[in-house]
């Protein structure tokens, strides 16, 4: 019986840890501390373009092949990376928007976010994020 309880605990802990395999980061000067997944999705899709203090939002994506982008896309947008790329293709062709800049890894995202006041990015759950601020993500 104990074995099953232990197994169940491991599974639950595993699911919880994997539930958010990414950290959302902003510049240290940003006063925002919590955002919902839906709000974050709108920032990355450029549907909301201003922070509460009126500063322009500058979202930074990771390249389409990165593992963390898949986890972020599934978790925040509730859509696949391909679906999000299709969305941006549509906006580019229609002239209604351009996708966020893409960075090749966590370090580049952290560096960019630390240097740009309005930036928001995401990195792997295990990334060292000194120099930037982590946002709490609510559902």
């Amino acid at each position: 019986m104990r074995k099953y309880v232990l197994l169940l605990m491991i599974v639950v802990v595993g699911i919880t840890v994997n539930a958010q395999g990414y950290k959302v980061i902003v510049n240290q000067s940003n006063s925002t501390s919590t955002l919902s997944e839906d709000e974050i999705s709108k920032l990355f899709l450029k549907k909301n373009t201003k922070w509460a203090d009126g500063k322009s939002v500058d979202p930074i994506d990771q390249v389409a092949s990165s593992g963390v982008r898949k986890v972020f896309s599934d978790g925040v947008h509730k859509k696949s990376v391909n679906a999000i790329k299709s969305y941006w293709q549509q906006t580019i062709f229609a002239g209604t928007g351009t996708p966020p800049l893409e960075k090749s890894d966590d370090d580049e995202v952290i560096k960019y976010v630390s240097q740009n006041a309005g930036a928001i990015g995401y990195v792997s759950a295990g990334a060292n994020i000194s120099g930037v601020k982590e946002l709490k993500v609510s559902r």
């Binding site: 299709s86 293709q89 549509q90 229609a94 002239g95």
Partner: peptide, 11 residues
Amino acid sequence: SPSNLYYYAPL
């Protein structure tokens, strides 16, 4: 019409 703006084949 959005169909005119989105007339490209991939869309």
